[in-house]
Amino acid sequence: MTATTSTPRPTTQLAPSVRPARPLVPARLDFAGVLAAEWRKLFSLRSTWWTLGLTVVLLTLMALGQAAAIADSLGSPEGAAVFADVHGAELVTGGYQFGMLTIAVLGALLITGEYSTGMIRSTFAAVPTRLPVLAAKALALSVLTVITTAVGFAAAYAATMPILSEHDLVPSLTDGTTWQIAGGATAFLVAAALFALGVGTLLRSTAGAVTVALTVLLLLPGILQFITLDWVQTLVEYLPLPAATAFVTVSEAFGGTGGFTPWQGAAVVAAWALVPMIAAAVVLRRRDA
């Protein structure tokens, strides 16, 4: 059926192509603009500040707690034996397993918050090709995670300094291992954030995405380690957190003697971030918003 509206009524008649006489509002869509928009989105929500603040607090307090506990153990001969090869940077970054939780929540909320509120329709109306939105979110989230983690580790460094110096465990900033551990833990948090963003894009639900992210990141490694079947243990090694120990820990006490080399561990962790992100990109293009 074809329905065509006919000519305008006389009072409003104008040539169809006539533009208004006043100057156009300057406008141009590009990736820099999309990135700026995502950046603004992050900082115009209170939830961002809460999660980032909580991340810094967790990174600091958990490091402090762990350092205090280990310092205590070092007083006894048994403890001293267990923690003989511990590296100071492992203690400073010790809160990363907690920081990963809040960072993952932030990553999931970044997209599920848009789906749950309807904002996604405004977003995709402005950027109908959609993929730049996901790329900009991933980039903004990664940068923000790096900054937050750096702040958290710096605070943890300062907070644990008195305890670590007593045991001559203050990590040297000229020691390559220090930077491997700190950089590795930071990269792991970026991967956790991207994993949650990818899962969030696929599921579109905050509850669903947070549940999946926390299950994979935290619960599965904890629960499955009690099932001592060989194949289950192999599976556990390939989960993000156990795989990450290959590059964020160096001492036996912290599990740094797993099956993977640091680079293998990094590859496994990167896959956990990339696979959901690629799947999200494929789905995002075709799905109705």
């Binding site: 700026a36 928009a37 603004r40 402005a126």
Partner: peptide
């Protein structure tokens, strides 16, 4: 402002 940012609108 978020919507405007995508298109560099002032």
């Amino acid at each position: 402002a978020v919507m405007a940012a995508t298109h560099h609108i002032s």
